[in-house]
Amino acid sequence: MGYYAGIDVGSLTADAVLIDEDGKIASYAVLPTGNNSQKAGTEAFEATLAQAGLNEGDVARVVSTGYSRARVREAQGSKTEIACHAKGGLYLFPDVGTIIDIGGQDSKAILVGREGRVINFAMNDKCAAGTGRFLEVMASALDVGLDKMGDLAFESQEELTISSICTVFAESEVVSLISQGKAPADISMAVSRAIARRTTGLAARVGVTDTVVMTGGVAKNRAVVKLLSEDIGHSIKVPDEPQIVGALGAAIIAREGDGG
């Protein structure tokens, strides 16, 4: 049986997905990218092989994606995250129309057409406001684990605002809120709200359709998803593993024989 792999090496995590001939997910891995993106890609790939009990030779084709897509040694082709999230999102939710992906250094809204074709997309401008990196910086300022930020926000009692859209300035706002003795839960909620607001603009630009799916690491933050859903006035579906959608899309593209 032939297998296909997608490797998504982004700024925060390196993810790999292995699918079989029928397109069924065989295994996946999510690892921190660290300071060596090439090595991280390899390790994620090897982790999926080990899990599935396979060798590299069992994989017919590998497609890479993410910011380091050009440096993934194992890949025979590459595609942008935009194309991969569209494919991966469609695989998980066949009626998907709009995908909102918030990754480490990019946030994007994608309008998906038939067969996972990208009809339109909008991305954050140069700055990292509203991205995963933004959330990470704020988590560190609050001294809260990144994965705890969302749950913490739900304990919020008081509404606070972070008005700056710049990550650096927003961080100093957070620091100043901490020094005023504001509760971490309230600050966490304010951070989530800031991200949701930024992302709403992107979604509005491409259009909110009947089925909205959120992918990328930030989709694990329940507070952001809830606020974003309120802002766009539409429910949002989140896959069980939102971080692997890019790699999954790349694997599907590999299976289709595409990816240049």
Binding site: Y67, K79, T80, E81, I82, A83, Q105, D106, R117, V118, I119, N120, F121, M123, K126
Partner: peptide, 18 residues
């Protein structure tokens, strides 16, 4: 100083794909 190769090229590449 305000230019990022990766950001610009990802957008251009996604545009070309579409």
């Amino acid at each position: 100083r305000i230019y990022s190769d990766a950001q610009v090229e990802t957008r251009l590449e996604a545009f070309i794909e579409s």
